[in-house]
């Protein structure tokens, strides 16, 4: 399957949930969807055996924007389909995709501890990367987290 036909297939599969679909680069398809539609969209890709989940990227859009964006990157040869989901900063929450893709657990654990986004129904919420004595409620990849250098001279 060539990358063009793969993207065409992905576009058709995701059409019903897409609020917006763009092609920012060649061989890329970005589809903005609602968090409630995430599981259905992921399942559609999985049922069609469309590529594999490369990773989940979390992006903090900033305090003013008041939202986080999660990017679910699916790779299929040269073709890349990205599901973009937004969730509000004051109560960030997305459903877990582990029921469909079990190996997503590591990516979801990273999202939980780095951004403080709750992932509903994920099987394991233990720390993955951060130290055991890392304070609760501090999420390093949020834009308003400023690294406090303990050795910095005043």
């Amino acid at each position: 399957m060539s990358a063009e036909t793969a993207l065409q297939t992905a576009s058709e599969l995701l059409e019903q949930w897409a609020k917006e679909a763009t092609t920012p680069e060649p061989f890329r398809l970005d589809v903005v969807i609602e968090p409630d539609d995430l599981l259905a969209a992921v399942k559609a890709l999985r049922d069609a055996s469309w590529g594999y989940l490369s990773t989940i990227t979390g992006v903090d859009l900033g305090v003013e924007a008041g939202e986080f964006e999660l990017l679910y990157h699916f790779s299929n040869g040269a073709a890349l389909a990205t599901l973009r989901v937004r969730t509000p900063r004051d109560n960030p929450s997305v459903p877990s995709v582990c029921g469909i893709i079990p190996t997503a657990t590591l990516y979801e654990r990273e999202i939980i501890e780095m951004f403080g986004i709750s992932v509903e129904g994920t099987p394991n919420t233990d720390r993955l990367f951060l130290p055991d004595d890392w304070p609760d409620g501090v999420y390093p990849l949020r834009k308003d987290y400023i690294y406090d250098d303990p050795t910095a001279q005043a």
Binding site: T55, T57, D60, Y107
Partner: peptide, 25 residues
């Protein structure tokens, strides 16, 4: 597969760089 997601905000500093190394999957 080594995966980089790079987001630029028009300055000389990246807005977000995401690295997913092949060992994780």
């Amino acid at each position: 597969e080594l995966f980089y997601y790079i987001k630029s905000n028009g300055t000389d500093t990246a807005e977000r760089v995401k690295v997913r190394t092949p060992t994780l999957p």
